[in-house]
Amino acid sequence: MSIRIISALVLRYLFLYTRTPMRLVELVFWPLVDLVVWGNVTVFIQKNSDAEFGGFILFFLGAMILWDVLFRAQQGVAISFLEDVWTRNLLNVFVAPVRTVEYLSATFFVGFLRILVTCVVMGLVSWIGYSFNIFQLHWWLVPFFLNLMVFGWSLGMISTALILRWGQAAESLAWAVPFFIQPVVAVFYRVEDMPAWSQPFAWLFPATPIFEGMREVMKTGTMNWNHLWLAAGLNVIYLTIAGWLFVWVLNMTRKRGLLTKFATQ
């Protein structure tokens, strides 16, 4: 075993980290997300440790399933785009008579299919294994599902725009972007259990009223319609901004000649 060779290989990895700062961000980002999410979950459980809460705690499973709706929709857009990059097919698509809106619509539909598969599997496993029936959300499930899916599409377009702008070094954003917002959208805990300073931020995202609504429906059987209107309104804003950002970045990569470089890397 040669120390010289090992040190050369270590040096190669260190060079890689300095050349792609995104890797350094990851080093800090994932542990921070974990810490904040589990910290808030801990606070939430400490504040609600009565007998009633024992039955209510199953909402974690509902939160897991609904979070996956958002995550899979986002992945449907971002990973579909990356599949074209990985297979060096992106140029074939961009020189075919495909409009940007057609390309995005196809990725949205792929996101929808991914959600269906994931939700069926998770729904069945949580029902059989943990007696948690997602259909206890009744018809509320439909607007929850739709709002989270649309928000996932918006995040997918934002992730793809960032990858287009920063190239393959930013690929990990395809997975990371949803987790940037996970700590502040109250997936596993109520907004009021979050640190006070972060609570106003929570209401800037359409996912927050949905997760709040899910807990409300599970606890009381009904929910505040204002939450739904807030989520739908925010989704319109996010979808518009994300679509504009995607088209703007795509045009910028064309102007700067980055598209072909990226697509043939």
Binding site: T87, N89, T264
Partner: peptide, 8 residues
């Protein structure tokens, strides 16, 4: 192009 491919 020799520099593009169809999904493998």
């Amino acid at each position: 192009s020799a520099y593009t491919a169809l999904p493998g």
